[in-house]
Every structure is written in C-alpha cells, then in structure tokens.
Amino acid sequence: MWFNWLTALTKGVLLMAIQIVTDSTVQLTAEELATLPITVVPLIVRIGNQEYFNDGQDITNTEILTHLINDTELPKTSQPSIGQFLEVFDRLGQNGDSVLCLSLTHFLSGTVNAARQAADMSATDVTVIDSLSIDRGLAFQVITAAKLAKNGAPLEAIIAAVDLHRSHTKIYVFLNTLENLIKGGRLSKAAGGIASLLNIKVMGEVVDGELQVAAKGRGKKFLNKQIDAVIDDIKAVSPAKVGLTHVDNLTTVSEISQRIKAALPETLVTIHEAGPVISTYTGIGALAIEYYTD
C-alpha cells in the first residue's frame, strides 16, 4: 500500500528522495515553491528577435500585457529544450535522487516530449507524466506529488495520487475571443467556428487534456451566465481546492472568489495572474476557473 515506505524506514533502509519537476505553465504560490521539492523548467517566449525565459523574471506578466495590447504581431512560445530538461534531471540526480516530471498537456505543447527525450539521455532515474492539464490544474497534481515525495512516499504511491487528482479536476476557460488561440495554433479554425469571426464570447473546457469549445454566445450576459453555472457546480460538489487565473481581470476573479468563499468558507481559493505563455494564447480579459474534488 501507499505507506509501505514507513516499514523500510524503521528497518534502517536509506531511501533516496524523489524530486518533482514541472514546467512554467504551472501556477504555484511562492510558499509552495519555497517549502516543497519542486523545480520549474521555463518555457520560452519570443517577441520579435528577442527570446525570454517564461520564469517570471526574464519577462513579467505585466510586460507581456503591454506587448499583447500594443504589438501587431502575437508573441511566439516554444517548449523548453531537451538540454534544459537534461541539465535539471542530471543536477537533481547527482546524489542518487530520482525525478518525477509532470508536464502540461501534450495537446497544447511539445514540452512532455522534450522531457521524455531528456529522461532517456539522463543518468538520473526519471519518470515523465503527461498531466493532461495546465495552470492551477497542473499545480494540483504537482503539489500533491511534492508533498508525498517530501514525506518519503514511493513512486507508485505518488503516481496513484496524481492519477486521482487528474480524474477529479475540472478546468473552464472564459475568453473574449478565440483569435489568439487560433493564431497560435492551439485551436483549429474549425473548432473555433464562427466565434473567431464575430468576436463571440467563449467558454472552453479542458477535456482529457484538450481545450474544447464548450459554449459560445454574444455579450457579457452570456459569459456571466456560464460563470454562474460553474460557480453553482463548485457549490454543489464542495471541492477542497479552487484556483482562479486571470489576464488583467482581477476584479472579476476577486468577485468569483468572494462568492465561493461565502458559500463554502472552508474551501481553499487561490488567485493567480496568468503567466506570459498562457496570456499569449488566451488574450486580455481571459479567466480560468479550476477546481479539484475529493
């Protein structure tokens, strides 16, 4: 079972640690990063001829908003290189530790493939998992994996917990336009349909790792109706964790947070600014509601 590692400890067996690696589309708080064995490998953002690491320092959330508003050309993004992952895997495994790498969904990036190729090249024992998620949904899996790893859980127990989180997480994305997703190749014109032409408001849902258009309609009234329905679902299932992510839309997500906390005071709700990669494809005003149910 999941706690068999305690038997090994009582027998004096020295167990090497498991290090958790993820990518920079994850939404983690400063406290989570400081207290848990998590290493974040940054994706890359290109603006014109300039290349930046999506690490919160090379280019900030505020700086990317300026480019999204003022530039005629959409910024470009790319997965971390195999070399980036290889350096991290080798460094974390120098003392014999193993690595569990949780990547954003392959439907939105080739990051997981770069991690797998690096794992094959590394001398470290590395397991790579496609989270089929992103943003705070990815964080739910990463945090649970890191907490178990910190407490000495074996790999099979951590993977089982990650699988459970994946199957119990819902992610809804609310967009003012699909233009950026289609331009960036993250959604086909056929999937976007007429919404991309008429600037119709859109609610997307991540289903088995793929972003799908769940509903579309005209005006803010439509979008607010969809948000109300998701909040009602959160109230009904009483999730343990809720993440709210926004692109220059703090007023709306703060109001959503207050409504959830009023109905479910014990529910953990965190608010996050979208990073440069996610902001590039969702556009100004976008928000996401992500929640995990036990």
Results as ranks from 00 to 15, higher is better:
62 T>H: 06
54 N>E: 13
72 T>N: 12
51 E>R: 14
47 I>L: 06
56 G>C: 05
72 T>V: 08
62 T>R: 13
73 E>H: 10
32 E>W: 02
52 Y>S: 03
60 T>P: 04
74 L>F: 06
31 E>Y: 03
53 F>L: 15
30 A>G: 09
36 L>I: 07
46 R>E: 15
35 T>G: 02
41 V>R: 05
65 L>F: 03
59 I>Q: 03
62 T>Q: 13
61 N>P: 01
59 I>V: 13
61 N>Y: 00
66 T>H: 12
44 I>S: 05
36 L>Q: 07
41 V>L: 11
62 T>D: 12
74 L>K: 06
37 P>G: 11
28 L>R: 07
39 T>D: 02
42 P>E: 04
53 F>H: 15
39 T>H: 14
56 G>P: 11
64 I>Y: 01
33 L>A: 00
53 F>Q: 15
57 Q>N: 13
52 Y>D: 12
65 L>Q: 10
60 T>C: 02
60 T>E: 01
33 L>R: 15
61 N>L: 03
32 E>I: 10
40 V>Y: 01
46 R>Q: 12
52 Y>L: 08
49 N>T: 15
72 T>Y: 07
52 Y>W: 10
34 A>V: 03
70 N>C: 08
44 I>Q: 13
25 T>F: 08
38 I>G: 01
40 V>F: 00
28 L>V: 05
37 P>Y: 11
68 L>P: 13
52 Y>I: 11
42 P>R: 00
52 Y>G: 03
58 D>S: 15
74 L>G: 01
49 N>P: 07
57 Q>C: 02
38 I>R: 01
34 A>G: 08
55 D>N: 15
55 D>K: 01
30 A>K: 14
63 E>M: 10
62 T>F: 07
57 Q>G: 06
60 T>L: 04
30 A>W: 03
37 P>A: 10
32 E>N: 08
40 V>W: 03
29 T>I: 06
61 N>E: 11
55 D>Q: 10
62 T>M: 04
58 D>G: 11
58 D>A: 15
43 L>Y: 06
70 N>E: 12
51 E>N: 07
58 D>W: 08
27 Q>S: 14
65 L>Y: 11
42 P>F: 00
48 G>V: 00
65 L>H: 03
26 V>H: 02
39 T>Q: 02
69 I>V: 12
54 N>T: 02
57 Q>M: 14
38 I>D: 00
44 I>M: 10
52 Y>T: 02
30 A>N: 12
62 T>I: 10
45 V>F: 04
48 G>L: 07
50 Q>I: 14
65 L>S: 01
33 L>P: 04
25 T>K: 13
59 I>H: 01
72 T>F: 08
55 D>P: 08
62 T>C: 05
71 D>S: 08
42 P>C: 10
55 D>T: 09
33 L>C: 08
35 T>V: 08
68 L>R: 07
29 T>C: 04
31 E>T: 14
33 L>H: 01
41 V>F: 09
24 S>K: 09
51 E>K: 13
68 L>H: 05
48 G>S: 09
34 A>Y: 01
39 T>I: 02
70 N>Q: 13
30 A>H: 09
58 D>T: 12
34 A>T: 01
67 H>I: 01
69 I>T: 15
64 I>G: 00
49 N>L: 11
